[in-house]
Design a protein around this nucleic acid. Structure first.
Length: 1120
RNA sequence: GCGCGAGUGGUGGAAUUGGUAGACACGCAUGCCUUAGGAGCAUGUGCCUCACGGCGUGAAGGUUCAAGUCCUUUCUCGCGCACCA
């Protein structure tokens, strides 16, 4: 008997496969199927197991679909530009061109030894001038469309690799390739306007079949957030402190909005003032605004105090603040005054009230008269300031824009923070603060990315300046802090410490005010408010108590109507009682504990609605959360019997409290109280003026509308995605095909001069100065301008190595075309990639970039579809045996060629790698697994040999069972391949072979010929060499031409069925019934009840119900 | 912190629409055989128990005749992004 020897048969079949049988046919009548795998970077290390998994999976699918009769394109190429090749070349003293050729050859040889059915005729490397000619041409299409542009910006710079990087290449402050810290460097850069495609890159995901993990990651990376841009006025008002009525230290401040009105009569060139009757005063017209529109209030004040009504509003002249002691009200005033100017159109007056007449009378004065009346004029300084403002003419108001997604929290915005790079920082800093601000900005700017990320401790300084909150009218301090990023939104935020964790942290550190404006508002699901009952608000206190001795917390486990509920100690707060007093009372009355101390009070209140059925009302309890401590609980006092019945006191470890508490609001309250949590969710609006009581998500929309009407806000969408930094300052990349001419500026290289070939140079070591090594190749750089013919220079930056991979699959469709990147009719035929298999790690780099390029090409009418890949799947990583990542430094890298050469062969390796785990799961490599699949293949080999040497009878006793195995295997393998469940497909083959081994003991009959042929055909995608060999031995010819086997359900119907019998859901017995009888429910139930073991479990009990699930051949007997 | 995913034997992993938990493989154990090979064949292998039986899919609760699968809460791990307002 011939023994299985992969080292003999595999090379034999690989040689045969060179005959072009895997060439895909353009324009074939058959259905096309493009099976794309990410092409490899041909490093000097050769193929690793990750590649092997990816290309084996691709090959399994390609071979399966080919067998099913589809025109499969399974192409392969090489993505060879970039640093590793440069480094490899330097190390080996050869050129990158030579290094690439060498590595491509190694990779190709290795892939052929794995038996991949690749169409090698379409292969290329991105470094072939024939290929990168088109990469350059495509770049120019972007340039011509305005999507490639130059900009001088601070970019990510890797000092180790001496090149600029895209945002996507920086992971946690490190360069993703060399893992060295990235710095900021300002350079003139080529950029790609990928942000123009942000929305489409998100929306396009809806039209393709990607795993949600990948789609989500892309959406997350693009980071679209809908919100609003809101303007905050800088508070430029001067503050006047009264000398006549100075502020009294012991008195409280009250705020007041005030309008000061000036009416100018152009005929007489006089201003309207009032003369007081009971005091020796002359003053401006003015009064409290009291919520009115300022201009309206001004008009009304003039009318009331002087009777003039025919006025034309000119402008708001200025605003100031003033502080003084108001003796009549016995308070200090914090006055916000607005000065308004009118012009008198006619002297028309209305009758004044007697009351007003008694106080004052109008008086027209010239400017000089007013200026000289200091002695009789209160607030003389303020008025003089207002006249000064009038002289200046229309004022330029300073405004700061912020971006927010939480407009609902604007009433809680208590300060503003600017990024250190914000353009207004310098001008806002007051004289007192200027020095610290300048110092802070300088320090922050010097920090590298990594330093900024490592140290998340909040830092910042006060600018000395203020803005006005447009919603609440409150003054807010303006701070500078580096937790606000210039690159996102407006580089400025309204800080809402009450509802944003970062702002909260900052406020705590610098003692800034915190204000709650959204209150968590839950509804008790077990006891919701009832329709028609009155809602009564009630203050509640929730108190947690820690015993310092044991570290445990006191909780109440409730009984009776609240059975199973666990809460903090709680109770109502009566009128005139503080929450603390109420809590102490509850501790004493409910659980008999005294002597505790209040240690913490939560800043946030929560509310919960429920029905207090015993009182016949709905209640909304607004709760405060307190933490008490007690130093050891002594003898507990006797508590009321009723309390004792209602609940039990339990003591719980701190770590277990959260899971022990049952209602959601209790869990939330605990987090807010104990974990310095910030309530960032949706809730009920509080402390927010007219929006109080609304749901915060509704209010978010309404507040923006309200502010829009006031002209200080508009809806806006922002993105985290930035434009793609496209320049690299290294040698081994596609030269950017641009010529710089002093006269014509930036001139694209004409199509006829493409490709701009990389010059072969001696020294391609990178430089530190931000120039590519190409800059020193004089004879290459110096060129005539294609437009004017004058001396000009070539662009010396090269493209990132993501450029070549952004369109490569299109080249497979027409790989040898000299006229175009690909002929349109071939692009139309092959269309979208049907399945794109690759690594999970390229989601935000290659996958996003290539979708961007393709969408652009579609806009240009160059490709037929908007999206490049109809379906994307990511294969999982193969870890080392110990579960860590394979790495050269750890020496745990598995070389696939070694596995083959060890004698297991490619078939065993291929089968092992797909059998390992579901294809998309990261999993450790198992060397023993190859031994297992080798044994499996060996068993199949031996089975076929035995059959070929055996005496075959025409009919066997077990033929029906043999056929059942055959059809079951074909069905399962086919279905699993469709669903990409490769591991279970292999398991089905193994199971089938195990069964055949048992059945062969009865001898071989003629049915075995077809059974073995089908088995081998099913194996072919996984183990193509041995399948080809065995199929030939069986006399079937070429396994590829044989196509994919089919199955017939009729062979799968068994003659008898095993019915499982459960009693109360537990397996108690089995009965075998004829297939006929399995359909007869009553009969099956009867047989089930008769079963011996079932009897034992039903004896003496009442059979309540018998359920028969025919589909599952299962009976469940329910007894009591 | 946010987003996504996952917790099942000693290990990798199966399990359809809620219906016999642990397919298949590795490993291990016992035996057989031998052309001594990296073999091959047979049997066994979730845990506790002599057994009857009981317990078992990270934890707690719920829905159901029946839960790995559905619901609620919670813990842990992995991946991605991360001071993104």
């Amino acid at each position: 008997m011939k023994r299985y020897n992969p080292s003999e048969i595999e090379p034999k079949w690989q040689a045969k496969w060179e005959d072009g049988r895997y060439e895909a046919k353009d324009f074939s009548e058959k259905a096309k199927y493009v099976m794309l795998t990410e092409f490899p970077y041909p490093s000097g290390d050769g193929l690793h197991l990750g590649h092997t998994r990816e290309y084996t999976l691709g090959d399994v699918i390609a071979r399966y679909r080919r067998a099913k009769g589809e025109n499969v394109l399974y192409p392969m190429g090489f993505d060879a530009f970039g640093l590793p090749t440069e480094n490899y070349a330097i190390k080996n003293g050869i050129t990158p061109q030579e290094a690439t050729a060498r590595n491509v050859e190694t990779f190709t040889k290795q892939m052929k030894s794995l038996g991949y059915s690749i169409d090698w005729g379409r292969s290329f490397s991105t470094t072939d001038p024939d290929y990168y000619k088109w990469t350059q041409w495509l770049f120019l299409q972007f340039y011509k469309a305005g999507l490639a542009y130059q900009d001088e910006i601070a970019i990510n710079w890797c000092p180790a690799c001496k090149t600029g990087l895209a945002n996507e290449e920086v992971i946690g402050g490190l360069h993703e390739r060399c893992e060295k810290p990235v710095e900021k460097k300002t350079l003139k850069q080529w950029m790609m306007r990928i942000t123009d495609y942000a929305d489409r890159l998100i929306d396009g995901l809806r039209t393709v079949d990607y795993p949600s993990r990948i789609a989500d990651q892309q959406v997350n990376w693009i980071g679209r957030s809908e919100g609003a841009e809101i303007e905050f006025k800088v508070d430029d008002r001067p503050l006047f402190r009264s000398e006549e009525n100075p502020v009294r230290e012991d008195k409280e401040f009250t705020k007041r909005d005030f309008v000061q009105v000036h009416v100018y009569d152009p005929k007489t060139k006089k201003y309207l003032m009032v003369k007081w009757k009971k005091q020796p005063w002359v003053s401006c017209v003015g009064g409290g605004v009291d919520g009115r529109d300022v201009v309206e209030a001004a008009r009304e004040e003039v009318k009331e105090e002087t009777g003039y009504v025919d006025l034309e509003f000119k402008r708001v002249v200025g605003e100031y603040r003033s502080e003084f002691y108001a003796a009549n009200k016995d308070v200090n005033r914090d006055l916000s005054a607005t000065a308004v100017l009118f012009e008198l159109k006619s002297g028309k007056r209305e009758e004044m009230s007697e009351e007003e007449k008694a106080i004052q009378e109008p008086m027209w004065m010239t400017r000089a008269e007013i200026e000289s009346s200091e002695a009789e004029m209160p607030a003389y300084k303020e008025t003089m300031w207002v006249f000064g403002e009038m002289d200046k003419g229309a004022r330029e108001e300073r405004k700061i824009k912020v971006f927010t997604t939480r407009a609902d929290t604007i009433f809680g915005a208590t300060f503003m923070v600017l990024a250190p790079e914000h353009p207004m920082v310098a001008e806002l800093a007051t004289d007192e603060q200027r020095k610290v601000v300048e110092k802070y900005v300088k320090t922050a700017g010097a920090k590298s990315e990594i330093e900024r990320q490592e140290n998340k401790e909040k830092t910042g300084v006060f600018t000395g300046a203020y803005v006005i909150n447009p919603a609440s009218g409150e003054r807010m301090e303006i701070w500078v802090a580096d937790y606000v990023l210039m690159g996102y939104g407006e580089g400025a935020i309204m800080a809402v410490p009450g509802h944003d964790e970062r702002d909260f942290e900052f406020a705590m550190k610098f003692g800034l005010p915190v204000k709650q404006v959204v209150m968590s508002s839950g509804v008790d699901p077990k006891n919701p408010p009832k329709e028609g009952l009155e809602m009564v608000e009630r203050s509640t206190v929730f108190a947690h108590l820690r015993d310092k001795k044991t570290g445990k917390f006191a909780l109440l486990e409730w009984h009776e109507t609240l059975e199973g509920v666990v809460t903090a100690v709680m109770g109502g707060v009566e009128e005139g009682e503080t929450a603390e007093e109420a809590a102490l009372k509850e501790f004493e009355e409910e659980v008999g504990i005294t002597g505790m101390k209040l240690v913490k009070k939560c800043l946030w209140k929560t509310s919960a609605e429920y029905c207090a059925s015993h009182k016949g009302v709905n209640r909304k309890s607004v709760g405060e959360w307190l933490l008490f401590e007690v130093d050891g609980v002594g003898e507990r006092a006797q508590v009321d019997e009723k309390e004792e019945r209602q609940h039990t006191l339990i003591w719980v470890d701190e770590g277990k409290v959260l899971e022990t508490l049952t209602p959601d609001d209790q869990k939330l309250g605990w987090k807010l109280l104990m974990e310095d949590g910030v309530f960032a969710g949706v809730g009920e609006m509080v402390n927010s003026g007219k929006f109080n009581g609304k749901r915060s998500d509704v209010a978010a929309v309404e507040i923006v509308e309200w502010l829009e009407e006031k002209g200080v806000a508009r809806r806006r969408t922002t993105y985290k995605l930035r434009d793609w930094i496209f320049s690299r300052q290294r040698y081994w990349g596609e030269p950017i095909p641009i010529i710089h001419c002093d006269r014509c500026g930036v001139v694209p290289v004409p199509d006829k001069d493409l490709p701009v070939v990389l010059p072969e140079v001696e020294d391609y070591e990178p430089t530190d100065d931000g120039h590519s090594p190409l800059a020193s190749v004089k004879e290459w750089v110096e060129v005539k301008c294609p437009k004017c013919g004058d001396d000009a220079e070539r662009e010396t930056d090269t493209m990132p190595n993501w450029a070549g991979s952004s369109w490569y699959w299109l080249r497979y469709f027409d790989a040898r075309n000299d006229e175009e990147f690909a002929a349109r009719e071939k692009l139309d035929y092959w269309g979208e990639v049907d399945l794109y298999l690759g690594g999970m790690e390229h989601t935000t780099l290659h996958l996003l970039y290539s979708r961007f390029w393709h969408q652009f090409l579609h806009d240009q009418g160059l490709v037929p579809t908007a999206e490049p890949y109809a379906a994307r799947r990511g294969q999982g990583i193969v870890l080392a045996t110990d579960g860590t990542k394979m790495s050269k430094s750890k020496g745990n890298v598995v070389n696939p060629s070694t596995v083959i050469d060890d004698g297991y062969g490619a078939d065993a390796l291929r089968t092992a790698i797909v059998f390992l785990a579901p294809y998309d799961q990261t999993t450790p490599w198992s060397p023993e697994g190859v031994a297992g699949t080798y044994r499996f293949i060996n068993r199949v080999w031996n089975l076929v040999q035995e059959y070929l040497e055996a005496e075959v009878v025409s009919e066997g006793a077990k033929d029906a069972e043999v056929r059942a195995v055959q059809n079951r295997v074909v069905k399962k393998v086919s279905e699993d391949l469709e669903g990409m469940h490769f591991n279970t497909a292999v398991a089905a083959l193994m199971e089938g072979v195990n069964e055949l081994f048992k059945l062969k003991l009865e001898g071989f009959s003629e049915v075995w010929q077809g059974v073995l042929e089908d088995l081998v055909r099913c194996m072919a995608p996984f183990a193509p060499h041995v399948a080809a060999e065995l199929f030939e031995q069986l006399g079937g010819g070429s396994v590829e031409e044989a196509g994919w086997p089919t199955w017939d359900e009729k062979y799968l119907v068994a003659s008898e069925a095993e019915v499982v019998v459960q009693v109360n859901g537990k397996l108690r017995g089995k009965v075998v019934v004829a297939a006929e009888d399995a359909k007869d429910e009553e009969k099956v139930k009867a047989m089930a009840l008769e079963q011996e073991n079932v009897q034992k479990f039903t004896e003496g009990k009442k059979v309540v119900k018998v359920i028969y699930v025919a589909k599952r051949h299962l009976v469940n007997v329910v007894v009591k």
